[in-house]
Amino acid sequence: MTATTARRLGFRQPSVIPGFGLTLGLTLSWLALIVLIPLAALFLKTTELSFDQFLAVVTSRRALNALKISFGLSLIAAFINLIFGFIVVWALVRYEFPGKRVFDALIDIPFALPTAVAGIALTTLFAENGWLGSLLVPLGIKVSFTPLGILIALVFIGLPFVVRTVQPVLLDLDLELEEAAETLGANRWQVITKVILPVIGPSLLTGFALSFARAVGEYGSVIFIAGNLPNVSEIAPLLIVIRLEEFKYADATAIAVVMLLASFVLLLAINRLQRWSEVRTGRL
């Protein structure tokens, strides 16, 4: 019965497999209940503010600084991950070295390790008397409870993205392509810039964007190490929590909406990038 209805609606191809109406219906309902309605509530809540009020909240000094810190440091962290991620992925794919498999598996630690655990571990390490922090004190570098600490945490949680998006593309890259370029007279540098980078470029960008998107929303691993000084080392997600604890729901929501819109834009960009990457490397 569902099959005939669907056919009449003409939005799906006929199939002998049963359960389309039921499963799609349940999927959409559950999606609506858990994801769509709650997100809609967020936007609905902002309508309680007039546009001027909304603007006042978002452009208040503290909110603006928090957003700047979140987006700015996330951008820097994503750049660091782009460069080091590329070096790591190159080493993992192209070279043999002892412990390679273990290191390869460890790349996913930031995905698997709860953020609170990462937060306290990094804070302890980079404290002035910590294993790593004590090494930096003589150099006059203070990490814990400064923006630099936030950066460290964001690099940590964004680390796997570049590696894991570029790795399959670099592995897929046909050795013959490089050989072809060499027979045509290209030197190593030309092979890398003209043949390898154009092929893996889109995946590098995707990894960068994913790493950035993750860092912008990050909370758990940052708040321990950040020190959370308003205007200096207070990230936007923390400000949302603070406003919420002050029962200023509308304020919290306004900041959240800005962040959410930013992540939607990023999500769209990432989708585009991945399509481009797949077309470019001929996987579509």
Partner: peptide
Amino acid sequence: VGERHVGFVFQHYALFR
């Protein structure tokens, strides 16, 4: 290989996509 000036046609062509 780059200095030998050989034209090499690969089995799967190895064209730059």
